[in-house]
Design a protein around this nucleic acid. Sequence first.
DNA 1: CAGAAGTGGGACAAGAACGTCCCGCTTCAG
DNA 2: CTGAAGCGGGACGTTCTTGTCCCACTTCTG
Lengths: 188, 188
Amino acid sequence: MTAQNRLRRDAERNHETIVTAAIAVLADAPEATMADIAAASGIGRSTLYRHFPDRQSLIAAIYARVFAEAGEIVRARLDAGVTGDPIEVLVDLVISLAGLGDRYRFLVNHEEHLHAKEANDGWRRRMPLRSYIDRAQAAGTLRDDLPADWLSLVLGRLIAAAARHEFADAQARRASVGATVRSLLTPA
Amino acid sequence: MTAQNRLRRDAERNHETIVTAAIAVLADAPEATMADIAAASGIGRSTLYRHFPDRQSLIAAIYARVFAEAGEIVRARLDAGVTGDPIEVLVDLVISLAGLGDRYRFLVNHEEHLHAKEANDGWRRRMPLRSYIDRAQAAGTLRDDLPADWLSLVLGRLIAAAARHEFADAQARRASVGATVRSLLTPA
DNA sequence: CAGAAGTGGGACAAGAACGTCCCGCTTCAG
DNA sequence: CTGAAGCGGGACGTTCTTGTCCCACTTCTG
């Protein structure tokens, strides 16, 4: 039982390499082929299949990876509860997630055009954003003239847009995105 | 020269039928096959190919169609110039375009995952939204603390989101989307 | 250093979609 | 009514991708 399943170190590294490369490749070529991904990983196609028996497994691994990264960011911001000003919390969250850039962009692409089980079941379920908004609205610290699901959808789109858009520089991005979120969350 | 190229009436009708059906099919199955589209049109696959020699031609025709429809909406709102309150003009525009619903949704999907020439060259070029924002900002009637291209990107995303989201009813949609746009365009 | 674990590359079969062609039938237009 | 225009449907060849398998080679690990 002492986990015979341990891979050799190089294999383990390859595993990582593949996922990383796959994320990068799929980011701007969502239709990329397994062969493409293997090539981009600098790895043989058969090796790719050795690590991920089929395309789905690879996609699943990618989702797991990005969920982990995004989840960390989200948790760091939202888990504290609704103590601070939710608007600033959300501003920070949107900017940070947008900073994931390429990876988040990829996620969005796939959420669009594979209406994948991974995307819907996994994604929304793990996203505490919606429930954070719920809580903040209940606590009366966030506008509640807009439904929480609509608000969280819009914020999600905003993140995607911010990740993709080319601002003059990083600071301009912070400023524009921040101002946008603040306006959005402030009732007229 | 008197346009021998005129199709027979039934053929012409089929042409329309195909485009319409294709829009509907591709709306929720962007990967739909030519055979799928033919089937959905109630038309033989070979006839489909007779009308559109390849997939690209069909897509192009669809874009043309949607551009026409969306263009009409946009022109009706934006061509008047920047006379009225640009915020209300844009609120109306976003709600109307979102109302295109299925068709717009399809556009967005394809803009995402085919970074198609049609999508980028055609779409943005024809979208007077950006230039409208420019003019309104220049005229001092619209917030100019956010760059026009960012603003128009966000509005575009908002339209897509609104088209896709299921609100309680049509009126709720008008209300939520309207409030969102108004907030967005009102500096904090 | 020896053997196990992992790799690369190529060959292969299966399946999907594309686009082409043809032939006999239906429908329009004059 | 009749010829031309258009249609359906099926058969094809092609290309691309997937996933499998194998075998000789390299790289870890103990």
